[in-house]
Design a protein around this nucleic acid. Structure first.
Length: 170
DNA sequence: AACCGCGGCAACCGCGAATGA
DNA sequence: ATCATTCGCGGTTGCCGCGGT
C-alpha cells in the first residue's frame, strides 16, 4: 500500500522537477544568448577595474559616455562613475580612519557627503556617508542601552526626526 | 573543529536634482 | 524650454568576521 502512495506522489513529482529543470535550462540558454547586450550587475572584477583605469586615463572621468562605450554595454555610466569616484580614484584611501577633527567635519557637513569628502583628504562621499550612518546607529544604540525595549523604536524615530528638523546632536 | 546566527560595514542600485548644450 | 548627461543622496543588499553552541 505504501509503495502505491509513493508511486502516486513521486512519479508526478519527478516529472514536474524534470519539466522545471528543462524550462529553466531552455530559458537560461535563450537569456544567456542575449547576455552580451545586457548591463552586468553586481561586483566589479579585477579585469573590469583595470579596463576602467585605462579608459579613465585615456578619456578622463568626466567623459562617461565615451568610457561606457569601452565597456560595450556591460556597465553603464552610473556604475562607472560610482566605481571610480568611490573606489578606484587614486586620491581615495579606503583604509583611512577618521580622526576627531574629521569626524567634526563630517558632523558639520552631514547630508552633504560630497562636500564633507572634499574637505577630508583621501575620503570619498560614500565612505563619509557610510561612516556617518554606521556611527548614527551606534549612537542610537548607546543611548538606548539603559532603556526598555518597548521604548527603543520610539526613541530612534524621535532622535532621527531631531536631526532632520533641528540638526542637533543626539 | 565545524557549523550557525548575527551585527557591522562596504558596495551597489534607484531615482531625483543639477547642469550644460 | 527641452533633452541628455552628470551628480549626489538614501535605501538596500550581501559579504565577512566574530562569538556562541
Amino acid at each position: 500500500m505504501s509503495h502505491q502512495i509513493n508511486d502516486n506522489f513521486i512519479i508526478p513529482g519527478v516529472f514536474s522537477l524534470f519539466m522545471m529543470v528543462s524550462y529553466s535550462t531552455f530559458f537560461s540558454v535563450i537569456l544567456s544568448s542575449d547576455m552580451s547586450l545586457a548591463v552586468r550587475k553586481g561586483r566589479w572584477t579585477k579585469d573590469e577595474d583595470l579596463l576602467l583605469e585605462s579608459l579613465v586615463h585615456e578619456h578622463g572621468i568626466t567623459n562617461l559616455s565615451k568610457i561606457e562605450k569601452g565597456f560595450k554595454g556591460k556597465r553603464n555610466t552610473k556604475q562607472i562613475r560610482d566605481r571610480w569616484i568611490n573606489h578606484l580614484d587614486p586620491s581615495v584611501n579606503k583604509k583611512r580612519k577618521f580622526n576627531e577633527e574629521e569626524m567634526k567635519i563630517i558632523e558639520e557637513n552631514k547630508f552633504k557627503w560630497s562636500d564633507a569628502a572634499k574637505k577630508i583628504p583621501g575620503a570619498s562621499p560614500l565612505m563619509v556617508k557610510n561612516f556617518y550612518y554606521n556611527n548614527l546607529k551606534k549612537k542610537i544604540k548607546t543611548k538606548t542601552t539603559s532603556v526598555s525595549n518597548d521604548r527603543l523604536l520610539t526613541l530612534a524615530i524621535v532622535a532621527t526626526a531631531n536631526v532632520f528638523t533641528t540638526g542637533s546632536e543626539f
